[in-house]
Amino acid sequence: MARPQGQGGKGPTQRQLRVGELVRKELSEILTRGELADPDLEGVIVTIPEVRMAPDLRLATCLFMPLGGGDAKKVETALNRSAKHLRGLVSRRMTMKYSSDLRFVLDTRYDDDDRIETLLQSPVVSRDLDADDAE
């Protein structure tokens, strides 16, 4: 019996992870080489740390981060505007039956980590943690 792919909180399958990494690699090369001519992306270095694939591999959610912060909303708009063109460039480089639709989302994981670290270091939280240790 086949198991459901990527459903029920089991996380992504090996196939989703493998295809996501291939798409990430191709997108990174395209953006690094400057194959995308968009005035809003000119002079902006964009990193793609992760690509999350849907269970049917039809949608790729691409997490991106402009180097140095930059104007993230402007970059996100430019990438989503160029998604169809990028899809064509990626599909030419990969051998898959279908080409995934690309959706770009700003990667906020690093900002969230900094926010949580700041909260844990705050005096209110440290006071509560010290109170728990004393008991």
Rank of each mutant, 00 (worst) to 15 (best):
P39Q: 07
G8T: 05
R18K: 14
L22P: 00
Y110W: 06
L106A: 14
D38Y: 09
S122Q: 08
D113I: 15
V19S: 07
V75W: 06
V75G: 14
K73W: 02
D112Q: 13
L36K: 06
D114I: 12
A78R: 14
P12K: 08
L89H: 00
L119H: 02
T108C: 06
Q121W: 02
K73N: 13
G11H: 12
R18I: 03
S91R: 07
L79F: 02
V75K: 09
V44G: 03
G70W: 01
V46C: 03
T32V: 04
G9R: 04
R33Y: 10
D107L: 03
G11S: 03
Q5T: 10
L41P: 11
V51F: 06
D132R: 07
P123H: 09
L27A: 02
S100K: 11
D114M: 15
G20T: 02
T61G: 00
A78E: 11
Y98K: 10
D112G: 01
A72G: 00
P4D: 14
P12F: 02
V44K: 13
A83K: 11
Q16M: 13
L17E: 09
M94R: 14
E29V: 07
H85P: 00
D101R: 09
I116M: 14
N80H: 12
R52E: 12
R58F: 04
H85W: 04
S122V: 07
V23Y: 01
K10Y: 09
D107G: 01
D107F: 01
S99K: 06
R109C: 00
D132N: 07
L41S: 04
K74C: 08
K25T: 15
V105I: 13
Q121I: 05
E26G: 00
L22M: 10
V75E: 13
Y98D: 11
E26I: 01
D114L: 15
E117T: 07
S91Y: 05
G9P: 07
L106G: 14
L27T: 02
D132G: 01
E21Q: 12
L79C: 14
G69C: 03
M1T: 07
L63T: 04
P39C: 03
T61V: 05
T118M: 11
T95W: 02
T108P: 02
L31E: 08
E29I: 08
R3P: 03
V90C: 11
A131L: 09
D111P: 00
C62Y: 11
G6T: 06
